[in-house]
Write a protein that binds this DNA or RNA. Structure first.
Length: 243
DNA sequence: AAAACGGACAACCGCACGCAT
DNA sequence: CATGCGTGCGGTTGTCCGTTT
């Protein structure tokens, strides 16, 4: 059997819907319901295929649809459900009242995908960064289990957004102070949230410097993680506790 | 000022599934 | 069981619009 796609039928309109078409569809559905999408456009007097009508109704015209920006809670829900379910947008949409699968799918591709990938890459980098931090403060400890325990703990706690992290000892970060250029560069991409004019990366609340002259190799990582932390809603104190 | 570019969102397309015959 | 049909789903494309060059 070869089914002819409904949209190939001659005379049917494609593309964006006009307000008039929307009004016709809304009025018809409210009056007669939508038991048969294929027959609906003809009955309603619309030059659209049934599929197009159904999509327009379910994704845009339905009265229970919630318009507007996604809340933080909705974003987190989408990210968590996507980790579990993958691209099963309709299943994810079922958990978010008022949101459609299409809307969630679009939001994922345009907003959330990049962020999640960036976080995943960052978590990978974190182990190396923490190893560097540990070794810079614990000479002679390289290669032993303490380093792995420390970095593993940090990684797991950060990944699960657990605030109760305590680093073993005052692992003070020593880094090059000349952050002007990297801060300037980062601010262009909204990654650096601190004062761009400051040559040191500082806690905004306490003014305490966490970057001291010394190790040039980790300054960029520190800027990255500091900003990721702030973006994630962590306090500077917690950041200090970790490093 | 205008062209080029890129992000956001709406809409389309093809496949798969379930149900009726 | 095979076929026909309606619908749901996810991937992809098209279009609009703001920003950058």
């Amino acid at each position: 059997m070869v089914r002819v796609p409904c949209c190939e039928k001659m005379g049917l309109k494609k593309g964006p819907w006009t307000p008039e078409e929307d009004q016709i569809l809304i009025s018809f559905v409210q009056q007669y319901g939508h038991e048969n999408w294929r027959a609906l456009p003809k009955q309603a007097g619309l030059l659209r295929c049934g599929k197009s009508c159904r999509l327009r109704w379910t994704n845009y015209l339905r009265p229970d649809i919630k318009r507007g920006n996604f809340s933080k809670e909705e974003e987190e829900t989408i990210i968590k459900l996507h980790q579990i379910m993958g691209n099963r947008w309709s299943a994810i949409a079922n958990r978010l009242p008022g949101r459609t699968d299409n809307e969630i799918k679009n939001y994922w591709h345009t907003h959330l995908k990049k962020r999640v990938h960036q976080d995943a890459a960052g978590q990978k980098d974190l182990r190396q960064l923490q190893t560097n931090l540990w070794r810079s403060n614990h000479p002679g400890s390289e290669g032993n289990g303490d380093v792995q325990n420390f970095t593993g703990s940090i990684h797991e706690n950060f990944a699960s957004l657990d605030y109760s992290i305590s680093a073993p000892g005052p692992a003070r970060v020593l880094a090059e102070t000349n952050l002007k250029q990297s801060a300037k560069d980062s601010s262009k991409t909204n990654k650096y949230l601190g004062p761009a004019s400051d040559s040191r990366l500082q806690f905004l609340s306490t003014g305490e410097s966490i970057i001291e002259p010394g190790d040039d190799s980790i300054k960029e990582d520190m800027v990255f993680w500091y900003n990721l932390f702030l973006n994630a809603g962590k306090s500077q104190e917690k950041f200090a506790q970790i490093v």
